[in-house]
Amino acid sequence: MEENGGIAKRVVFVTVGTTSFDALVEAVVSEDVKNELQKRGYTHLLIQMGRGIYSPTKCDGADGSLVVDYFTFSSSIADYIRSASLVISHAGSGSIFETLKLGKPLIVVVNEDLMDNHQCELAEALEERKHLYCARPHTLHQALAKMEVESLVRYTPGDGTPVARIIDRFLGFPDE
């Protein structure tokens, strides 16, 4: 956490992934959500907006309000997640697991406009295990209001060892 003019910098990083998700961008810059974020001590709002056409108003926070900034794409999303205190993400499994592995509090916002919306399955299953919070664009404010970062359970990453063991046995390789 950097010191910035005496106040600790606490960044909220928003990511929409490789496509566009304007409903999420509009939701995070709504007055309700910005106020709630500020109330909770966050100082910066940084948005990765992808191919979206809705550009939020940038704000340098000179009047003591939340600093708002955005960009379209970056090859180092992991660095932004690492430096964030809270991540608000689309429901793609890549972003979800990248955030969970870095141990950052996460709110996943499901895109209701997608036709084959199986992605909410993953977010809801992980919410059930208390690894993250799940919301829709119009319920983001409520999700933030009832969010208790301390009650989230740290995610233990899995790996391919069980799959590898079964494949090896199937192909007749000796166990190690």
Binding site: G17, T18, G92, S93, G94, D159, G160, A164, L171
Partner: peptide, 19 residues
């Protein structure tokens, strides 16, 4: 694309490459 490749590489990383 995306998540699929990450999962596949996670599996490959634990498979014995010589096999």
């Amino acid at each position: 694309s995306g998540g699929h490749t990450a999962e596949m590489l996670s599996l490959l990383s634990v498979l014995r490459k010589d096999r």
